[in-house]
Amino acid sequence: MADPMKIRASAKEGVTEVKVLMSHEMETGQRKDSSGNLVPAHFITEVTAEHNGKQVLAAQFGTAISKNPYLAFKFKGGAKGDKLAVSWVDSKGDKRSDEVLIG
């Protein structure tokens, strides 16, 4: 299981801003290790966010997203204390979900 995500969600004047920092190597499959062998690709492919069970964002990532991906977005609605869940799946089928309360 991968390390937990850091998620901040704050509601202000009816709009919730979400910032997520995921912990992932994001190997592109183009890098070589010290002995010259290609390091196989291993990266997050899909990220979804749900506010109280309703999807507010569905993202697909390629290999060009930086290591330990950062993602910020905003959606209308959301109040303090609401649940916000973020999940990702990577190219090897690993997955991680974390949940925070909107502050």
Binding site: V56, Q60, A64, S66, P69
Partner: peptide, 20 residues
């Protein structure tokens, strides 16, 4: 292609990330 985002109704046209 670095990333694509689907925005359901109610999600604002605002995304930020970091790319290589």
């Amino acid at each position: 292609l670095a990333a694509s985002f689907l925005l359901p109704a109610g999600t604002e046209a605002y995304v930020q990330t970091r790319v290589k």
